[in-house]
Design a protein around this nucleic acid. Sequence first.
DNA 1: TCCAAATCCGTGCGACTGACTAGGGAATGC
DNA 2: GCATTCCCTAGTCAGTCGCACGGATTTGGA
Lengths: 143, 143
Amino acid sequence: MLTQRSRYGLRAMLLIASDPVGNPPVPMSRIASEAQIPRKFLEIILAELKNANLVVSTRGKHGGFKLARPAHMISLGDIIRVIEGPLALVPCVSRTAYKRCKDCRDEETCAIRRAMMIVRDDTARILDGTSLAAATEESLAAA
Amino acid sequence: MLTQRSRYGLRAMLLIASDPVGNPPVPMSRIASEAQIPRKFLEIILAELKNANLVVSTRGKHGGFKLARPAHMISLGDIIRVIEGPLALVPCVSRTAYKRCKDCRDEETCAIRRAMMIVRDDTARILDGTSLAAATEESLAAA
DNA sequence: TCCAAATCCGTGCGACTGACTAGGGAATGC
DNA sequence: GCATTCCCTAGTCAGTCGCACGGATTTGGA
């Protein structure tokens, strides 16, 4: 299951993405109220997203957040990986956080690993293949 | 990512499954030493598995644990669901723990939900489609 | 009969994480 | 210079993870 953080992150990103491109940045307070996310908690999440170069911020009056790339170039997988961590169920099949399992005799023939690998690939294929743009087309608030 | 618990659970089940069918039950101490799982922690995990009717135990001397069903009738999904919880990433696509997301306008057209649903189905298909028997055929210790 | 081998059962515990709060700083625009 | 915004550092509070301790209970065998 995804953590609350991740769901908040998805909601926040969807909301920013749903704002017309030419508009001024979306202030945090509006994200908090419209997506129903605790204000201060949202700060932390947006900081992570900013740190990962998924959003850019402008300070001062009329400041706020905008997507760092167009909405069709940011995937659900990008967001989840930033907030939640690796998509893989076990370290030995993770691309971003590979770690050998210590008592595995042979990674090549391990059936557990093979199943986990397929799960990971399928998951990544779906989540990386769904962009914010695709998601906002039909629904505005979810997760 | 799966928790350590779940990985221990998988290892324990694999070890029990790898024991010849006619043999006496496998004592916890042997599982602990061979699968490298802390003895007392293993107690809790085996209790969960027993409670979920995946293993049966016999007490007293020469007691231990055996699979409750033949190894080809227990899937990795069965085990993970018991110890880790639902396979779905969000509650609104879970079969075993469905819960509506409060501010979702329309579940039918929600693209997030649709992506998550596909991920869940793929995950379940693989994990429920891989039995302990299939896993033990090629590798004995993993995860 | 009594011991040893085994599962069962409750309790505790330190570390971490998840979710959230508090309070002030620093930049920017009017 | 003042309001509006983001930025930063802590700290709380509850829960879970991973694990350990000390038994009680059941069973088989010497």
